[in-house]
Design a binder for these strands. Structure first.
Lengths: 111, 111
DNA sequence: TTTTAGTCCTATGTATTGCAAGGTATATAA
DNA sequence: TTATATACCTTGCAATACATAGGACTAAAA
């Protein structure tokens, strides 16, 4: 079910604060979404190639420097669209959850 | 983004009312979710084979009889799990949307 | 100088999802 | 009897998303 949500969640994250890969993994973990390196690096690269993200090299207190990703203007626009899609999906589910049960579930079932 | 949501939406639908394929397509359309035959028949068959759905043959006012699908007890249990997963996902997104913007988005971007 | 920790990356594989296209069967209407 | 409308189904494709596994580079610590 979470399929396809990762991109949205990452853009939401980056809207709030520039972050590098391990950062993002940690923050998503806090938000109850488990991701691993092998998932996130290709995704960040893809989003950068599509022009939705850009990055700054920033020194690490230890080891290799970090790529801090931020939203580009195009990324911000794209996020607006994703927000709309998410709202629509939420509404769809809400509507379906609110349907009244009209017929008992256990009559005349043929397996 | 809607990927993987279809199963959930169909189970929600069937919880409320037994339905056959074209019925389901129509109701999902009303709920703003477009689906076509080639998508739904394999899915219904899969869910039946997994024991989540069962069906009754019911005469059609015209043409071939219809398979009215209903949730099995196992399907109802499964739906409980999906509801939980959906709640968690909603919470995750809500949390990420509520993050405060802490750093401007347009400084020092290297493409 | 070697080890360790942190950071980046790619290639490949797996699984799934949803769709397009084509096919079969039933029943009524012309 | 043929045509039409309704209903079911299967096969195979395309996309994609995520994970696994491996590798390489940098800098500080031992």
């Amino acid at each position: 079910m979470r399929k396809g949500m990762l991109e949205y969640c990452i853009l939401l994250l980056l809207r709030a604060e520039a972050s590098y890969a391990n950062d993002i993994i940690e923050k998503l973990k806090e938000a109850q979404l488990l991701v691993v390196e092998g998932t996130i690096y290709p995704l960040l690269t893809r989003l950068k190639n599509e022009g939705l993200l850009a990055y700054n090299w920033i020194e690490s207190p230890r080891g290799a420097p970090r790529k801090y990703y931020t939203l580009t203007p195009k990324g911000s626009e794209w996020l607006v669209g994703l927000n709309a899609a998410w709202s629509e999906l939420s509404n769809t589910v809400a509507r379906l959850k609110d349907l009244k049960v009209t017929i008992p579930e256990n009559e005349n079932i043929n397996l």
